[in-house]
Amino acid sequence: MNNPRLRATRADKDGLARRPWRGTVREYDLFKELTVALVVMGILTLGLSAIFGSPDEASVTLKSWANAAPADFVATATAELAGSSETAGYGPPYNNTPDATQTLGPLDLQSLSGVQLPIDTANDLVIDPLSTLNAPPPELADWVKASDAQRTGWSTAYSDALAKATDNDPANVAADAGAYGPVPVLTDSLLTMAKQGALDGVLAAKGDFYNFDYTLGTLFLGDGAYFGDLATAQHLTGDQWGMMNETGNTPGQSWLWLFSFWYQVEPFASAPNADLLVVLLMLLLSVALTLAPFIPGLRDIPRWIPVHRLIWRDYYRRR
């Protein structure tokens, strides 16, 4: 009757972990450990804080952008009018631009959420702010009266002209009477508004006193080149492992290393749906590690690579 006994031994071995421990014990003081840990970690925390501090790089405002890079600001404002900016073509949750969402086969979570934060870039970022001015430019009326085709024609023509102009400076744009309509005046008025700091408040509060929501300003900043260039200089962009980086040398979210890693390698690096792929992959990996006790192979690695022989070497020595 060898076989049943063997089975019994194995069952007993597993059962050992299941039952309360009835072997030798050592004295252990939970509260003492807690106190020692509080002191040790307290010294470490306060010491690191005193020595290394924490970074606080000042935020960018629409005002600082307009003053530091006026040509970029005007080009971006023109793109918002033309509907050719990144935000204008983003799709949900901001707008309904066709074929803009990240999909995986039939899976289109972005469209599923719907347009929850509707943004009309021309109106929300340029026209409405201008109309809050005490003396809005008279050309604003021309834009409001014009047809969609006319508006697109003007702003696209001006966009192209800005791209060709020396230093992309609006002052160097080729004269073409009528082709740009009111767009040069509107974008220049917005630039003045931004330079004076008025646009920051208008975009943030949207005519109200209170504000919690910085979506409009953040997206407007991101549509330009200035904001991204600053981030690139600080190694913060997605293709620079930026997700885990903090400004300067302070450690950032190093626990996001795997999330950042996928964006650096193919097929993710050049995939148009990279965000969706990486999010789904990380969800899958997180669930896998969480359910490790149920996954054959993953749960057996600790038996195959016996690190536990080191951890419990004292126990094994005195078996």
């Binding site: 969402t101 929850q116 953040t218």
Partner: peptide
């Protein structure tokens, strides 16, 4: 600060692609 501004701009894409950005 600048770091949070950029994280908000960059981080929105992953959340939007998963449909929870709103």
């Amino acid at each position: 600060n600048f770091d949070s501004q950029w994280i908000a701009f960059e981080g929105k894409d992953a959340l939007n692609s998963a449909g929870i950005g709103a």
